[in-house]
Simulated assay, not measured.
Amino acid sequence: MSTTHAAAGAAVVPPLFQGLFDDAAVFPPGNLPVAEAVPAHLAHRAAPYADAVGPLLCGAGRLGELAAAADAVDAVTGASVPAADGTTADGTGPRLRVGLVLPGGSSELGPALTAAAPFVLAGVELATRDAREAVAALDLLLPPDVPAAVELPRELLRGDGLEEVLDVLVDSPYRAKFRTGGVVAGAFPDEAELAGFLTGCAQRGLPYKCTAGLHHAVRHTDPATGFEHHGFLNVLLAAAETDPKAAAEILAERSGPVLAEAVRALTDRQVTVIRNSFTAFGTCSIAEPLDDLAALGLLSPDLTPQEDR
């Protein structure tokens, strides 16, 4: 499998990484102001590495700021508000694809869908303490062409709770969502906990996305905080496993070259299986994961942000 170049010689984003990095710039720890995040996201979407970049993630309470920032960009570029297919009225201009993040549960869903009307709605991420109630709300209100992911607190996913939630979601059209980090040490699951989630989904053929703490490719200890971060390459390689012990061993690997060699050995079929399972993750930095991949030889340096060269 080619990891860096198309047959014609132009650098391309390998299928393993296409659409993997949802732009969570406005969320901690990045906390980029919305007015800066919108033009930065549009620049990512126009860059040579655009195929790696998912939608701009935005919380329900900041959609007003997002609309104002998009209007400001439109005023500068002369473009009009994007239509439902992502194009502007004249077929040009920015394509602002937005992923709605709803930490307040199903009560936010209806108003947020209305407030998101000016944007191309790429997905909904709904936090809840009741998976069945969340599925019912999504079934009732979500447009049929919009994907959604359901996140439950990690404390409800321990023991039999994980099995029950995954069984609810596997009978629905929605993905699971799992939190892999945060701003405190307790927000980071250990290898066994994350492996339990990944293999539970793999056993059911249930797709999922992750969020927080994954913006570097390889498992590491953050030198500033001491937090143990999972690597997104570790998670990608563990995504095809159905055995929790095997998945935990992959998640514990700290050698970039070892992980890179395992990625190079993947067949096209394995890549498809992995990405059908692990669909995306939110990262407050688009540059860091791309730079990591380039450093490991898994991505052409031509596909990293210009300012990093």
Rank of each mutant, 00 (worst) to 15 (best):
T3K: 14
A10I: 06
G19I: 12
P28F: 01
L32R: 13
A43R: 14
R45M: 14
Y49R: 03
A50L: 07
P55R: 02
C58L: 10
G61Q: 09
R62D: 03
E65F: 04
L66T: 09
A67V: 12
A68H: 10
A68T: 11
A70S: 13
D71Q: 14
D71R: 15
T77P: 14
A83Q: 03
A83H: 13
A84H: 08
T92N: 15
G99V: 08
V101R: 13
P103W: 06
G104V: 08
G105H: 15
S106V: 15
T114C: 10
P118F: 15
V120M: 14
V124C: 07
L126N: 03
R129H: 11
R132W: 00
A136E: 09
L138M: 12
L141A: 02
P143K: 04
P144G: 08
A149Q: 06
P153W: 00
D160E: 02
L166H: 00
S172F: 13
Y174K: 07
Y174S: 09
K177I: 10
R179L: 12
G181P: 15
G186H: 12
G196Y: 00
L198D: 02
L198Q: 00
T199K: 03
T199M: 02
G200T: 03
G205T: 10
Y208N: 15
T211S: 14
G213S: 10
H216W: 03
H220T: 02
P223I: 01
N234W: 08
L237C: 05
D243Y: 14
P244N: 05
P244T: 11
A248S: 06
E249W: 02
E249D: 13
E249S: 13
A252C: 02
E253M: 07
S255D: 11
G256P: 01
V258Y: 09
L259M: 09
L259D: 13
T267I: 01
V271A: 06
T272E: 12
S277N: 01
T279S: 11
A280V: 01
C284P: 00
I286M: 10
L290Y: 10
D291I: 06
D292K: 04
L293E: 04
A295M: 05
L298W: 15
L299Y: 07
T304Y: 12
P305E: 14
D308N: 12
